[in-house]
Design a binder for these strands. Structure first.
Lengths: 134, 134
DNA sequence: CCGCATCCTCGACGATACTG
DNA sequence: CAGTATCGTCGAGGATGCGG
């Protein structure tokens, strides 16, 4: 059994630890992209209620129709969000978190709450760093 | 006092909740980029020990010198990593997590452990989804 | 109402070569 | 050894318009 850090396997090489390849990055990258967290947050407000496409769009200032569609597709593909299509006129489409999507919320919240408590320090550090460049 | 979800403020609009702008995305985006988590993971293995540039590079297969430099610069700018330069010949440069950087580890670990437990389900969902497209 | 197609811009990332 | 400079590629993301 090899050692792990953050669930990431690694071995002790001659010149220190070497990380072995890992898949989970794809999930982190997804959550880190421009709109995904915002969509998750909107759906997390009342996790049992499904929201219409337009309600989500209205909830996220400045998101384009195209990017919302793509973001929702990706979440659906990952099995975190379920899409319900109602073939009415005009059509109605609603989205909800799946069970898996809901289990992600506490873990995500743990991380975002750390960010909430620390991002001001981070912002200050960035300003200092940038100011130090002549 | 307005309501929040994941530390994100929102208001109840006429057609549902509306997220108000939020800064923390920049932190999530940072961690979600291609190499940052890997660098954090390497430094997290023994948080009290500083590592040489080359040790980090050896620990992350396929990272280029350029991308490691950029990634470390960004982390230093955010105040999560501290850089120590020793003007010897040949030069030696070491990196350690800052106190702030260390406090991030448990929160990050919470999220990555959720990913570890669920990414196989996510992978399966992706394969199914892709297979469903004719 | 919702989604797709098209076109465009820009920055992340990689490869390579050079310097103190 | 560590970092910088330069150049090239590629895909994320935005604007707009059409269609069921």
């Amino acid at each position: 059994m090899s050692k792990t850090i953050h669930g990431r396997p690694y071995r002790e090489g001659l010149r220190g630890p070497v990380l072995t390849p890992c898949a989970p990055h794809s999930v982190l990258a997804r959550m880190g992209d421009k709109w995904t967290i915002l969509v998750m947050s909107i759906l997390a407000i009342s996790p049992e209620t499904s929201l219409r496409f337009s309600a989500i769009k209205n909830g996220i200032p400045r998101i384009s129709q195209r990017m919302l569609t793509l973001t929702l597709r990706n979440l659906e593909r990952d099995g975190l969000v379920k899409r319900h299509y109602y073939p009415e006129v005009p059509p109605r489409v609603e989205y909800v978190l799946t069970p898996v999507g809901k289990t992600m919320l506490p873990a995500l919240e743990g991380f975002t709450s750390w960010i909430r408590e620390n991002w001001q320090a981070i912002e200050r550090s960035r300003e200092q760093f940038d100011a130090a460049e002549t």
